[in-house]
């Protein structure tokens, strides 16, 4: 074994990390997010251990809803990443495709991809744990719609980054949702967050969606104001994300990255 050869291979990757802010961020990101998320969950259960009568039902339902969001976003990103990995990216952009057609096709295909993944999990919940998501009634459809819109919004933002900055932005595709998990109050109520974080969290549709899911599961009460707040916020973010995607496409054409997507 020669040290100089091993050193050479190591610095090949260090050069890559040094030259890419998204890669450095990715290294720091995961441990920080894990600590924050599980810190809040632990704090909640320490303080309010008698909060849920139906702990498993609420936690599992929220986990499935969160997974639906995760999958709809990742599916959108994956469809785009597949084109980069297969070096097919340029072929698509020399084809007579409009940006609006790309967005629509990815959004529809991502939904199909998400449903393939999530439907078996929803079906398995009942025989394995005696929990049915359908006990949430018609409001469930609106919650899914909201989550799907937000997942697609995140997908659009990540793919905008991929268009503008290239594959170095790939890690962000995987990690974007975990950044929002602690703020989204998936497993605990909004009140568990410090006040200054609550202000920030209220800007996310996730808070309203998961607060509502818990309200239905724990109290059997549907609060449509939460559902409307989530949908309105989603429409604002979704429209902004489409505008950002168009800007990223224009930026990529200026930078010339559509013809040469590489490391």
């Amino acid at each position: 074994m020669k040290l100089h050869r091993m050193y050479a291979l190591s610095i090949r990757h260090l050069y890559l990390i040094k030259g890419s802010f998204p890669r450095i961020l990715d290294l720091i990101y995961w441990p920080t997010i894990q600590i924050i998320l599980w810190g809040f969950i632990s704090q909640f259960f320490t303080m309010y251990s008698d909060y849920y009568n139906n702990t498993i039902g609420v936690i599992l339902s929220c986990a499935i809803l969160y997974d639906f969001l995760f999958r709809s976003s990742i599916s959108f990103n994956m469809l785009f990443l597949e084109e980069i990995w297969s070096r097919n990216f340029t072929n698509l952009f020399v084809a007579p495709l409009k940006v609006s057609e790309i967005i629509t096709a990815l959004t529809a295909t991502a939904l199909l991809r998400t449903l393939i993944g999530i439907i078996p999990a929803i079906i398995l919940m009942s025989p394995l744990f005696g929990v049915s998501l359908f006990q949430m009634g018609p409001a469930l459809f609106l919650l899914f719609l909201s989550l799907y819109l937000f997942g697609t919004t995140l997908g659009l933002l990540v793919t905008s980054g991929l268009l503008r900055f290239g594959p170095a932005f790939e890690n962000t595709a995987w990690s974007s949702l975990f950044l929002l998990a602690p703020l989204g109050c998936v497993y605990y109520p909004l009140s568990i967050l410090p006040e200054w974080l609550q202000i920030l969290a209220k800007g996310l549709p996730l808070v309203y969606i998961f607060e509502e899911a818990r309200s239905i599961l724990v109290n059997n009460v549907v609060n449509y104001s939460n559902i409307i707040s989530a949908l309105v916020l989603n429409l604002i973010y979704f429209t902004s994300a489409i505008a950002i995607f168009y800007l990223a496409f224009s930026g990529a054409r200026k930078k010339g990255t559509l013809i040469n997507v590489g490391e």
């Binding site: 297969s86 097919n88 990216f89 340029t90 072929n91 020399v94 084809a95 409009k98």
Partner: peptide, 21 residues
């Protein structure tokens, strides 16, 4: 114009490929 013009054009380069799978 872009979309209608691209219908009449095509491109080949060794640096791009078709989906392998």
């Amino acid at each position: 114009n872009r979309t209608s013009l691209l219908e009449k054009i095509n491109f080949i380069s060794p640096y791009i490929e078709l989906p392998k799978k």
